[in-house]
Design a protein around this nucleic acid. Structure first.
Lengths: 110, 110
DNA sequence: CGCATCGCTACATAAAGTGTAGCATATGGA
DNA sequence: TCCATATGCTACACTTTATGTAGCGATGCG
């Protein structure tokens, strides 16, 4: 049983159902951001993805199901799990985080 | 007891300690993204923030502590909790999500 | 057949989040 | 002085979510 996170339906912790809230709710779940991140360069199979992030198969499967329902990833029989075009758009918004995180690291270094 | 999320120390679920992983780990915790989002326009006091997101004070306090340790927010006695300059930089990277989420909503609408 | 790989499920245990009550401190009247 | 209010925050029992390990059914290959 998968709780779909879709705009239009109230997100966990929010009654509004506004797209931004649904999105923040989806991305705020453990491993979700990480999964999208791991798929940034190439598709990965279920087990490869699981190994890459080091989470349990149970939760990996849940997150994959949620991300598929949200049409951010899809399962290609040949290649494995990969970002959809929507997912790639989202990733593009997140790519600047990589560089910024380095700056952040230096800024708060002891 | 607060588990600090800082680059240099391995993030939850990752042994690398790479800044991007630490950041994804921090932001992937429930309510964290939402809190940063709620502080985008003006500082909020503890209770105002709690009411805005509808989470328990326990977890709000945990997330605030983590975000303060990560130097993304700070507590000003006059104004309340607000983004630091680092936090504002991070928020700027996230602002495009707002618009994109609307597009996403339309794309996956039934 | 035997063996490997695929996505995925079962299930007991541990960790994380919830909801409600309330504490300690400070401030500002009456 | 006493009361009320607001501050950030803590305690604690309860529920939800995630972990770790084992293994299932299907598919392909020799």
């Amino acid at each position: 049983m998968v709780k779909a996170v879709l705009p239009g339906r109230p997100a966990r912790g929010s009654k509004s159902g506004r797209p931004i809230m649904a999105l923040l709710d989806l991305l705020g779940r453990r491993w979700t951001l990480r999964i999208v991140w791991e798929l940034r360069e190439e598709p990965l199979r279920f087990r490869a993805l699981q190994d890459a992030i080091g989470a349990s198969p149970t939760i990996v499967n849940s997150r994959l199901a949620e991300l598929r329902t949200a049409r951010l990833i899809e399962l290609d029989d040949e290649a494995g799990y990969r970002l959809t075009s929507l997912g790639q758009e989202l990733l593009r918004l997140f790519l600047p985080l990589h560089l910024w995180s380095e700056k952040w690291a230096k800024a708060i270094a002891p």
